[in-house]
Design a binder for these strands. Structure first.
Lengths: 204, 204, 204, 204
DNA sequence: TATGAATGAGATTTCATTCAT
DNA sequence: TATGAATGAAATCTCATTCAT
């Protein structure tokens, strides 16, 4: 039964949008949002700059949709993990693994997020970035604190510093990660977790 | 390393220049290079946009001077460390500590470097960024490999992954570091090293 | 007078055309011709912008048809009045009454005419607006002059000023007139004529 | 003592602005706001389109400044009249005369106001147009009502209709008025008042 | 040294119009 | 008849840069 492409019954309209957003995300990630002209996006999509405005209100709304779509999916994954009732170490392991999966699925969006979220977050339109940031910190920092209390994590470290360490460590990976590379997201997660949890020094 | 452009105006008091560059760096770091208009810099410096051109050739040359000054100093520090003939673990410790000191001294430049160096490096004018990158990798990766060989570091990790892990982990700190905060650069370095080398998990 | 363009699509049901023109006229009148996008018209008509082009050549041709239809009807009425051989005062009364009837029937067209005719008239396509203007002035000014000569109207006024006064006085009414309001066009005409002819001051 | 141009001591900066606004107003009045491109304004001012943005934020802000400046002056004049404690007929006479003086001084702004104020007034930025409208109606309608009560004006007319009649009759004059023409504003006001108050019909 | 005004190139956006389906 | 997608021209606006004073 050679149905290469199942008919998009009701999911028809967003199809083109999604393609265009993927293209835009690629260019944004590669060149930076501000350095990206809509003409570059249109070129990459094989159309004229003005034509993009049939699909989107503005360059900014493309950025908005890219980021919010990513964050929605990220939180779907995180919320599942957080609701699973795991111990602190297992929660951290699951969050890190989930993060690398998201990087794998949304590499461009993550890269954009890394570079732009800080100065975007002050704009009302992008308030949700700041909100997400807060929720994010609550989840990770809370887990780390629980881990210290339950003697899963070291107590001699500034927990806030630890939080930043783990957070940055994971997410900057998006800047060099290439989907379809040598390592699967799970494999990268495994090695990262090993380093983060046990260190890189050889134990004697 | 960056070859310094000839100073543009003969006897421009270096004092004012430095102030203006610091101002520019602050704005670049906060808003991103492309999103920063010369007007914003001028506003922050209390002058009109056109007046900046008495001091600098162009917006790009400000960026250039900020980044090259930073890299010059960074390499002065690194080269001293690398010439000291320390063991691999001690070398890593010294490099990390030196890195946090540079973040302390050049926070804005580091933040700019993080955000912009990738797409700048392709321009001839900023070739030195790519050169530095190569030299940087040689120093760190080499030290890590030496450490594995000398059984200072674990052999079961992908060393390239380890390199990125350590590199990113240290430098992203510039994105949240505030000079004059709770911890001195040395204290932060100490804790970071402890995490990187020994992990955050409690050993039983 | 406007020479009708050939109907663009052979058997386009004139019914739908008329509806669409009424819709277009409404939007033109409310927002101004230039500020009206074809999308706004299409929205108001419950279709997509491109679909309008099945019915009309262009946005301009809609405007053309609205204005020429209105002027055709206006002149049918005026010509009847002018051919009736009335005295000057009675002619003015009849013209004013007829004008308010036209405002009642073509409110939007009149409003558009008021706002746009001056700058449209220079275009060849809209030459008929200028022609109408000339014919209009001839009819009114002539009647007023005849009235002065026959001692129906005051001789101490600049007749040109009087002409403008009467003309404007009547037609601006389209800007506030709402069909189906308190007063019938005939009643408004009566009161306007009373003011124009006898003034608003109480006679002692 | 040939002082052609007194030195503009403190009023220096707005000089250029005022010139440019006058130019813009001229073009807006002639072609309509929407049909006027900033390029046309710039051409008329002998500069490039982009250069206008050194002086103004946007095309809209030029319009805003033109209209608000006009209304400020108008109300200064009206308020003086209204505060003078005149009888109703004398108040109407003074308001009409003042109106023609404003038309003389701000012909372009008045023409723009006539054409654009209705659809602008719905925008928050131009709320003051609606406010002014209300205040305007209060002043004129109030005076007319007082005049009816004090038997200065006819009681057999719909006063609201009378208000519109007088209001429109005066202000549309801006559409044909040319400063420096045959009649001074005062002379036009005199004849208009004569028509409005006593009618154009010859009394027997 | 700095200002005020402008340039000119290019960016984003708008919109009437077209056209295959 | 209408839709969905696009074109292409032009409009508004931005901004690094220049320059006379």
């Amino acid at each position: 039964m050679p149905t290469k492409k199942q008919k998009q019954v009701s999911a028809a309209p967003p199809e083109r949008r999604r393609e265009l957003l993927a293209t835009a995300a690629e260019v944004f990630a590669a060149q930076g949002y501000n350095a990206t002209t809509v003409r570059k996006i249109a070129d990459a999509a094989g159309m004229l700059a003005g034509s993009l405005y049939y699909h989107f209100d503005s360059k900014e709304s493309m950025l908005d949709e890219i980021l919010s779509t990513f964050l929605d999916e990220l939180w779907a994954g995180y919320d599942t993990v957080l609701a699973a009732g795991l111990g602190p170490r297992e929660t951290i392991e699951a969050l890190v693994t989930e993060s690398f999966r998201e990087i794998d699925r949304h590499r461009d969006a993550v890269a954009i997020y890394q570079k732009e979220s800080r100065h975007l977050a002050v704009q009302p339109r992008f308030r949700y970035l700041a909100d997400s940031q807060v929720k994010f910190e609550k989840a990770w920092l809370g887990t780390l604190e629980r881990g210290v209390a339950e003697q899963a994590f070291r107590a001699d470290l500034d927990v806030r510093l630890t939080y930043r360490f783990v957070r940055d460590t994971v997410w900057v990976a998006a800047s060099w990660y290439r989907p379809g590379g040598l390592h699967s997201p799970e494999e990268i997660a495994r090695q990262y977790l090993s380093m983060v949890l046990d260190g890189i020094a050889l134990r004697r």
